[in-house]
Design a protein around this nucleic acid. Sequence first.
DNA 1: AGCTCTTATGAATCATTGA
DNA 2: GTCAATGATTCATAAGAGC
Lengths: 273, 273
Amino acid sequence: MPIATLFLGDCREELRQVQSESVDLIVTSPPYANRRASSYGGVKPDAYVGWFLPIADELQRVLKPSGTFMLNIKECAVNGERHTYVIELILEMRKRGWLWTEEFMWHKKNSYPGKWPNRFRDSWERLLQFNKNRKFKMNQEAVMVPVGDWYENRMRNLSETDRVRDESKVGSGFGKKVENWIGRDMVYPTNVLHGATECNNRSHSAAFPYWLPEWFIDLFTDPSDLVLDPFIGSGTTAFAAIDKGRNVIGIEMYEPYYLNLKQKLEQELRLAI
Amino acid sequence: MPIATLFLGDCREELRQVQSESVDLIVTSPPYANRRASSYGGVKPDAYVGWFLPIADELQRVLKPSGTFMLNIKECAVNGERHTYVIELILEMRKRGWLWTEEFMWHKKNSYPGKWPNRFRDSWERLLQFNKNRKFKMNQEAVMVPVGDWYENRMRNLSETDRVRDESKVGSGFGKKVENWIGRDMVYPTNVLHGATECNNRSHSAAFPYWLPEWFIDLFTDPSDLVLDPFIGSGTTAFAAIDKGRNVIGIEMYEPYYLNLKQKLEQELRLAI
DNA sequence: AGCTCTTATGAATCATTGA
DNA sequence: GTCAATGATTCATAAGAGC
């Protein structure tokens, strides 16, 4: 039976109650700069790095050495330019010991239309992966995807060159051995995730679709592991974690969100008994 | 009749022959760190920013105030981490007066295969947009796309809140009136581009797929404008520019590429007379 | 002409071995 | 030790051949 723990308060404070090196996966979508002013006070772009770094430090303390921190973030446009707080944050976090392992891209296919004279609709967000060590827990098999349509045609008739390693002819150093693919119906994904944004949530503004934390929970944790979201909001991360049999800690400073989520969690966990 | 000008040599030198504020669009894909060692020497990741900045300075000189610089680039993985030279380059270029207007995303559907313990296949690249001024030439109508799945699915079920202007309930200030889009069959694109990489070029490893410079030429130039690619390589940018009735300047330091492109350009321009 | 099938190959990364 | 070269891993696309 998964355990869900909820804290009401600013995660800069509440994180102190979380034990050091106890968390397997942190996955969160913090308030973006200038957004959600009514509930989070609207961090100014120029102040964003200074605001986030103390939180990043605490997250580093509570994360297991084998753990992963997935940060969903995107810079806003300010005065006709993309702001630099996200890339500055990456550099600062590296100075403080984080490893910037990877940047996944989330392609939001149903972003709302809009028209500006100098830019198009912003249809992607960053999913920054940070780690404490070069070795970390990663269950790649848990997120495999069906092989593409090309496979069936490709495998129907294997040529002779397919059965041996076929070295590239132009010196790229790349070869293939198609025979390895026989019988395979699932392949590994790429670092581009696509899916729609959540667009039916009236009580919380954050567009963190369920499949997104779910995917990283599958990838970076085992059952009974501990997942943390310091900006839990409407609780998407919590429900994904519980559904997957993981324990979860959520922190929320905006009381209406906190109370709403607390009630829904109690209901879900009671029903599951 | 479009004019194509080719220079053989290092663009740090050859760019001096290009007149100040004469170029409407720079679109290029410089050699990535540690890549193309045989033809370009393989710039080391730690030396990349220092190598590129003098080039960026010259590009700033030759670009018109209304012009745009599109830089296709992606960081490599070094020692288990994404290297930071690209984001450092953005910060340094801003210090030197460039505006970082936008970051388009190129989703490469047929990325290199491979399997590693700590990451998936890298399937996207950055397309960084830099400008000299907040006002720049942009022909948004030239790149409109037919409505796709988003339109189909979104329009099928128009909710009541879609029919009236739905002032955001979370203070984001973003309202929407989806009904305005009914009946249109062309919409503006997003900042995510997708398409395959070239994978059939035998004489030299292909840089851009043709549609990529073509798209930015449509978007950021008018007929008879001047397009510059300081790393012209196999000449994709040149052919796209010529086909679109734009003039083009290309620089190439690797003589086999230069000679090959020169011959093909002469052929094409002669045939077109 | 238009379809199906065959084939080459593309900005890759990590572990290991050798200098 | 540091650094460089070598080997192993494996999708999806589009040109071209075949029918």
